[in-house]
Design a protein around this nucleic acid. Structure first.
Length: 602
RNA sequence: GGGUCGCUAGCUCAGCGGUAGAGCACUCGGCUUUUAACCGAUUGGUCCUGAGUUCGAAUCUCAGGCGACCCA
């Protein structure tokens, strides 16, 4: 490739006319000259001129056009004439020397005409594509194809006048085979191209290279580098090349580092995206309408959970973040939108564990004229499709356990499952006392809050059954007391038409034939209110506006909620919900002063 | 909320009452087929914080902070 053609890969595009409001600031004159490639028609003399012009104005500074991208990176070290007062401090503790060294290298590259932060680069292949397309190239052979690639330098090995870098992009990796002689011949404008590359480019930097493909004697597909260019300088080191990011917390706090070094993490988030889009596609293809309901609500309802509280200034109004989308979606069904769903974030003010994050993603789906058994089949289809899309199969492994997601899945009533596990037949208990005594003699604990036979049944289920439901199991027919929004069972008094889906011992979906009788709904909500007044701060409130909506007539409806994060955990074999949420909630990092202040208070 | 374990160089860890260490990374020197390259040299520390015991504390005790795992 001719030098000028190479240069065109990373110089700015020809300027197109844009609306004035979208115009970006014009680069400084000097900066423009500085960013000329070597070998351009202006030559090194013009470059020197640009440098002189800049240095005459005081300590070297990056062109204004680059500033917005750089924040505190833009100053230069003391040794190069930068103003110490203006130095940005590294955002992470320590490493000042290492960072200074890298700043100096960036500065040195800028003096060579390679601004440390390029505008653009046009690769002609991804690394994964190259690996696939040239898998047949034998060891020791070279292929005369000009490849231009960009990526992050992940590892460097320098052997005298030869060097091997490992370059990584989103699709994969490739080795760079860097010979002094090859570079010298291909980059005559920079006789020191080789030593500049190995001396000024660190692991972590983003570079673009061009060259032929060659497979080394040891079988590593490589780009035999003819030309190179720095695209972005990394001032901070990559995680340890061998151990990687072992600090679990750091993986979550600095997710970008996790993604850089961990192909598994990248794959997890790709799969998450595929799962969500598969669910969305399936619903869209079946005439479901995606809608959005309020996150900010005067009272948060639709689930037993404590909300986050926030405040609207101009209305001087206390608001809650939603804990469910249920009550608003049902209003839309009343309004005649017969199939609706919302895929979005829910907020619950609860603890953090491997299965709980205070903000999480759910999909709630409502289908008019359907009941919970219709929704059961929809659940099987949705999760089956998600598994096929994410994993290519419905036979998966979760944390070493084989799980078969091929429909149909087991269906069992809560009563039967509890009896199977404990020998207790709750349908025979006529009173709370009778049930409680039986539970105690069966070795189960009886909490004070479980003040009815139905609640005791649920307790027994949670204590003895839940964790054992490894293969997908629909647990049917819940007690009415714990299901204030579900319709009474058509045949079984005291129960509702509801199921929850359990997989690997975890609640993954929740569904009922919706309660559409406004009088019954009011009675149930008032019962909830009584519990709340008695001290249960997760009990629900009476939502008058919702009941009014029901009074206008709601069609019989099936409603279904699926926990997306737990589903993604299952389908990515992730042990913690934090592995499938890019930025899970973490305690803020406190500095020394904060800690002392807190210590002083206590 | 309870229990267990951990916190020492940028990273991974050793040291467990007597001068703070190793490997890797960084920097410098050498090396044209490496794969955690290798060889040599240099640099690098609030041993999480505070109090106590002791002639002497990274080490023992207590309190606190933060984290991991398990349980609720």
């Amino acid at each position: 490739m001719r030098p000028s053609a190479w240069a065109s890969l990373w110089q700015s595009r020809p300027r197109r006319s844009r609306p004035p409001s979208l115009c970006s600031p014009r680069p400084l004159q000097g900066a423009h000259q500085l960013s000329r490639p070597w070998g351009s028609d202006q030559g090194p003399a013009a470059m020197d001129e640009g440098l002189t012009a800049l240095t005459a104005c005081g300590p070297p500074q990056l062109p204004l056009s680059d500033r917005g991208l750089q924040g505190w990176f833009l100053t230069v070290p003391r040794s190069l004439g930068g103003d110490p007062a203006g130095w940005g401090q590294p955002p992470v503790r320590a490493l000042p020397e290492l960072r200074d060294t890298r700043l100096e290298k960036a500065e040195a590259l800028r003096r060579l005409g390679q601004g440390p932060y390029a505008l653009r680069f046009e690769a002609n292949a991804s690394l994964g594509q190259l690996q696939a397309a040239h898998a047949d190239l034998p060891n020791g052979q070279e292929r005369q194809v000009e490849v231009v690639v960009a990526g992050r330098v992940m590892a460097r090995r320098v052997i005298g006048k030869l060097a091997f870098f490992r370059l990584s992009d989103e699709s994969g990796e490739i080795q760079l085979f860097i010979e002094k002689a090859t570079l010298g011949a291909a980059m005559p404008e920079d006789p020191e191209a080789f030593s500049h590359l190995i001396g000024l480019v660190d692991s972590g930097d983003l570079i673009g290279v061009s060259g032929n493909l060659r497979r080394t004697d040891r079988g590593e597909l490589s780009v035999r580098v003819r030309q190179w260019r720095l695209l972005s300088k990394s001032l901070l080191p990559l995680p340890d090349k061998w151990h990687g990011l072992t600090d679990v917390e750091k993986r979550y706090r600095q997710r970008y580092l996790d993604l850089i070094v961990s192909p598994t993490a990248r794959e997890t988030f790709r799969r998450r995206a595929r799962i969500i889009s598969a669910i969305r596609r399936h619903l869209d293809n079946h005439n479901f309408l995606e809608v959005e309901t309020p996150v900010l609500q005067a009272e948060a309802g639709g689930a037993d959970a404590r909300p986050f509280i926030t405040h609207h200034n101009t209305l001087d109004l206390r608001l809650h973040l939603r804990i469910a989308t249920e009550l608003h979606l049902k209003r839309l069904v009343v309004g005649g939108l017969e199939r609706v769903y919302e895929l979005g974030r829910i907020f619950r003010n609860e603890g953090i564990s491997t299965r709980h994050n205070p903000e999480f993603t759910s999909v709630e789906i409502y289908q008019a004229y359907a009941d919970y058994l219709d929704m059961l089949e929809l659940t099987e289809r949705l999760i089956g499709v998600a598994a096929e899309t994410a994993c290519g199969t419905t036979h998966i492994t979760y944390q070493g356990t084989a799980v078969d997601l091929t429909p149909p899945w087991r269906r069992a009533t809560m009563h039967d499952l509890v009896e199977e596990a404990t020998g207790l037949d709750f349908s025979r208990f006529g009173s709370h006392e009778q049930a409680a005594a039986a539970m105690v003699s069966a070795g189960l604990s009886v909490p004070d809050t479980a003040d009815s036979v139905g609640r005791l049944l649920n307790e027994a289920f949670e204590q003895k059954v839940e964790a054992s439901l490894i293969q997908p199991t629909f647990v049917l027919d819940y007690p009415l007391e714990i299901s204030p929004l579900a319709r009474p069972h058509r045949d079984k008094p005291g129960l509702v038409e509801r199921f929850e889906l359990f997989i690997v011992g975890r609640e993954t979906a929740n569904c009922f034939s919706e309660l559409i009788d406004p009088i019954d709904q009011r009675r149930r909500m008032e019962e909830q209110l009584r519990r709340r007044q008695a001290g249960d701060d997760e009990a629900q409130l009476v939502d008058e506006d919702f009941i009014t909506a029901l009074e206008h007539g709601m069609p019989p409806t099936g409603g279904l909620g699926i926990g997306i994060d737990r589903l993604v955990m299952l389908l990515t074999d992730s042990p913690s919900i934090r592995d499938v949420i890019a930025f899970p909630l973490l305690r803020p990092v406190r500095d020394q002063a904060d800690q002392e202040a807190i210590a002083a208070e206590t």
